[in-house]
Each structure stands twice: as C-alpha cells, then as structure tokens.
Amino acid sequence: MATKGETILEVRDLVKHFPLNQGIMFKKQIGAIKAVDGVSFDLASGETLGVVGESGCGKSTLAKVLMALERPTSGSVKINGRDIAKAKGAELKRMRRNIQMVMQDPYTSLNPRMTVGDIVGEPFDIHTEVAPKGDRTRKVQELLEVVGLNPDHINRYPHQFSGGQRQRIGIARGLALQPEIIVCDEPVSALDVSIQAQVINLLERLQNEFNLAYIFIAHDLSVVRHISDRVAVMYLGKVVELGKDVEIYDKPAHPYSQALLSAVPVPDPEGRDQRERIILQGDPPSPANPPSGCRFRTRCWKAQEICATEEPLLQIRPGTSHESACHFAETHDVVHVN
C-alpha cells in the first residue's frame, strides 16, 4: 500500500467521446459528444480531490472511465504506475480491487432483493482471495460496524433502512476489498441536511483510518470545500481550474469558477446585499459542438478575440499560484464580503 502523500493515480490527457449516430438501418456516425476532452491530474494517497461543475460537464463520465467501467477514447489512467484503461482479464480484475465507487442514489443503487450481507459481501464473490468462504460473515459484520451500522442487521433488506443508512451500506461495500482509491459520485446529494453531515463525517473518519484517497464529485460547492484538499473545476469536458481548496475558493482565477462560486448561497443573511453575484447568461453550449478556442467564451464577460482562436491551456498563470485555463486569468475573491 502506498504511503501518505505518494502519487497513486495519474490521469493524462483523458478523452471520452460518445459517438452520435444517425439512421436506424445503417448507422452513420455524424459527430461525437465530447463528454471528457483532455483531462489530466494526479491524486496522492490519503488525499481528496473534489470535482465540481455544472450538470453535463462530464463528471460522471470521468468517474466511469477512472473505474474502467467505460473505455477511454484516448489517454491514460495509471494506478500505482499501471494503466487501468489498457488492462484486460486477470490484471484488470486485480486493479479494480484498488479503486471502488460510491454512487449518488441510495434508493436505487442497491439491489432490493439482496440482503445487506449479500450486498456488502458481493465483491468477495468476485475476489474470493480477500475473504475465504468461512470468513465472510465475520468480514461483512466488521464492515457494517466500521460504517456505524448494527452488525446484527446483516439479514435485512435495503428498504428496511433510511437513505443515510443505505448510503452507509454502499460505503461498506466500497470498502470491502480494501481499496486505496474511492470515487464518490454525488454521495450525499440525495440526503437530508442533518443526515448529510453524518455521512460526510463518516467518509472523513474512514479516510484517516485507512489512508484512502477520494475523488469526490458533487455539485454542492460547500460540501466539496469541506472535504477536499484540492479541487478541479470542470466546464464542458475540460478542467478549467485546479488548485488547493483555499486557492480555488478564496482566490479563483478563471471567470467560470468565479461565476460558479459567486452563485453559491452563503447561510448567513448578514451582508447578503453586499455580496457580489455574477449571474451567468444563457446555457452551456452542447458538448457535441463546443465553441472554438476557449469553451467558456460564449458566456464570458472578459472574452477577447484571442479567446475564439486560441485554446487556453491549463497552466500556472502570471499573478496566480495554481493552474487555470484562461488567457486573462486574474484572482478575485467572490465568496467573502469585504
């Protein structure tokens, strides 16, 4: 197992295009939905990388490609130096043990006809080497206890649990194979506020206990800030800004990040009339036909001619300490009232 701080996941130029077909008898490809279009980042063991961005920007697609549930169109996903995107057969199976997923919807992501014991223990069916047959019940009960569920409830069914408890079942299942990386795709969005906090605290405790690395996808920017060490902001299939949580939240440099952050309501009515709000006009363009140059330019108030002709690369820009993909990057705190 990697020690804390060592890079365990290296994503390079990752691309996932879904073909757009026309015709029923003779399918003809007329284009592609560029769901993920050149994404690169590293993740260290024990670290949390938050991924934020509007609906449809490619967050879940990224998660599926990382998990090797979808094959990338191009690019690589190296886990401890080996590319899972190219792995096959026994090697793929072994690598999958190391990266697990917790999904958004605690109401539909668990099979209603399986008992909790079967759900949490299912990964052992595929990876029999982790828990020999006679040892399974004990292992599953241990896992239930780790996530704060009553081990005696091993024979109950999902509908006998609340949303927050079901999410814990999903987490216990994700932990079964002792992975180093867990991809959480909107793990708390379907939960009530008072239950969200319970699940977030659990994820943090487990991270410390098992030195887990998280990719934490959510559209709630406050939750992402709370749990993340670093944050990637996505727009239309690309990462437009990447940095430590304080860099992204207190000193965002990309206009899209600034707009996104300024739109987040702060639960404090004092100073609400002084807060700066950047209200974005229009909708995001279609990922099948993204704008030339900078993809954000159709909604950007700072756009110049160069933005249409030259794609801004994700790199450290003058006057900033972290990477952003804007020709005119400039840090600007939009979250705090001065």
């Binding site: 406050s222 304080v246 404090d268 979250v335 705090h336």
Partner: peptide, 14 residues
Amino acid sequence: SIPRVDLKGQDLYA
C-alpha cells in the same frame, strides 16, 4: 451541520 463555501470548517456537527 452545514458546511460553508466561505469557511473551511473543522468537524461538521451531525
């Protein structure tokens, strides 16, 4: 129990 975008909190109260 709610995290805030303008503060990096410690443990969340649940």
